[in-house]
């Protein structure tokens, strides 16, 4: 079950790939929110799904409530993307979208789904785009995404994902730092995949590194 950790070079390359992808996501979100959005990926890690609840609790804060949206993807890679927002993030986004006071369930749903769609699409799609551009990878690297749906509202971070009910073994975890209108908050993008998906990503990172 234990995957080898990313080497420093692999980690650095993956970080750069995701930062490029997030630049595009930021531009899409800026259009959506009509505000300057700065997105960066300060931390990336790969964890076994079994270790996910404590890791998420540590990242988000043990007693903090989160809301999350999920979206499955298939094609070159298959798995499930989960985007997790803490309370401050939800509220900051709501303010920007011009919701007065209480966001309400409908507003929050709309917001989470829009942002989830942009982030997971940009992250995985953007990564694939770089791969096609810079490596000799042949064959289709296309990815298809399902419509996003709400996974949970206001639950404790450690309770969000039950490893016993997840069909994937590993997760690529990206911390996404948002800066919008001088406000700063963090979302967590969790890409659940089978082990061979992680190895595939490792393979394309190596190819990417070799191209330079």
């Amino acid at each position: 079950m234990n995957l080898a950790a990313l080497t420093n070079d692999q980690h650095d390359a993956l970080q750069e790939l995701t930062n490029i992808a997030m630049g595009q996501a930021g531009a899409s979100l800026a259009t959506l929110l009509d505000e300057f959005v700065d997105l960066s990926v300060p931390r990336i890690r790969i964890v076994a799904v079994i270790d996910l609840p404590p890791v998420l609790a540590e990242l988000v804060g043990k007693n903090n409530l989160v809301s999350a949206a999920r979206q499955s993807f298939q094609g070159y890679l298959r798995g499930e993307a989960i985007i997790i927002f803490g309370e401050p993030g939800c509220q900051a986004l709501a303010d920007l979208m011009g919701f007065e006071g209480e966001l309400g369930e409908h507003g929050e749903t709309e917001l989470l789904l829009d942002v989830a769609n942009v982030l997971s699409g940009a992250c995985l799609g953007g990564m694939m785009e770089q791969i096609r551009k810079f490596t000799e990878t042949t064959g289709s690297t296309e990815l298809g995404f399902s419509m996003p749906s709400i996974m949970a509202r206001q639950v404790m971070a450690a309770q969000l994902i039950d490893p016993g009910k997840v069909r994937w073994s590993h997760a690529l975890l990206l911390e996404v730092n948002f800066t919008i209108q001088n406000r700063n908050f963090i979302a967590h993008l969790t890409m659940l995949m089978p082990e061979d998906g992680i190895e595939k990503i490792r393979g394309i990172i190596d190819e990417f590194i070799a191209a330079f």
Binding site: A21, M22, G23, Q24, G26, A27, A30, F36, D38
Partner: peptide, 8 residues
Amino acid sequence: SADIQTVA
């Protein structure tokens, strides 16, 4: 930069 927004 990866930040491609016109404001930047």
